[in-house]
Design a protein around this nucleic acid. Structure first.
Lengths: 127, 127
DNA sequence: CGATTGGTTAGCCATGAAGCTAACTATAAG
DNA sequence: CTTATAGTTAGCTTCATGGCTAACCAATCG
């Protein structure tokens, strides 16, 4: 469910047109026509992008009269951002452990160097 | 250039298999075989995913002997995370402005209510 | 050397994504 | 009522993606 959503959010953001739309909507809501204006693209093609953004949950829209107004719905965006932050947390934890490991190795090497100087300490550093 | 890269990074992350690989690699490097093991997928299919991750810049790999070892290269990941943070910054700035605007409206309405009480104040709240 | 393991290449297929035009609906505007 | 505007639907083409099998290196192991 959340995975499904991540699939769709990332897929939606993989397209430069759609990223541009999201960026535009960050600055405030807009009608389909206003959104489509900067793009050299037929309206039906453009509408598909809007639809992709809607089904990904990144954008909501509502029609009043003959104009459809789109706004960003930031939840999906935040969800994706969370994913990055989780990965980064894991990554950084690992780096810390790795660094600690390297420091340990270094100290052991120093101690060994004191005990028996001049020996090409072979390091078996497979991760 | 950076846009091109964002395209590829987001496209890479739109696939659950590839996200799983990235998550796995956050915990440390691994060989192609180790990475492929949890997945019920033919090796050539799996290799394509690895390749997508490599061309997106998310993963680096190097072959020694007959085993190819993959590691995460966090730059692309951080680049994508930056994109989110920029959008969020813009979004939040807008929200602040919007809130200020609403507060202003509210105060004006209050002042108006004092001047001439009992009148259905029609709000022209477009944006 | 011969067999095994780990990865790779080539090529096929089905599906989906991204673009288009043409034609249609429905609300404003004159 | 008529026309223009804003969006929508249908249907087509083209190309990319994700999966497969079969066959092929190239290191290791026995």
């Amino acid at each position: 469910m959340a995975n499904q959503s991540l699939d769709q959010v990332f897929a939606a953001l993989a397209d430069p047109t759609r990223r541009a739309i999201v960026m535009r909507l960050c600055a405030g809501e807009a009608s389909v026509g206003e959104l489509a204006d900067p793009f050299d693209m037929a309206l039906p093609s453009f509408l598909k992008h809007i639809h992709v953004l809607e089904t990904s949950g990144l954008v909501q829209s509502e029609k009043s009269g003959r104009v459809r107004t789109c706004r960003l719905s930031p939840d999906a965006l935040l969800g994706a951002e969370d994913w990055f932050q989780q990965q980064r947390a894991i990554w950084e934890a690992r780096l810390d452990r790795f660094e600690a490991y390297v420091m340990k190795l270094k100290k052991e090497k120093e101690r060994a160097a004191v005990k028996r100087p001049s020996r090409t300490t072979k390091r078996k550093g497979s991760e």
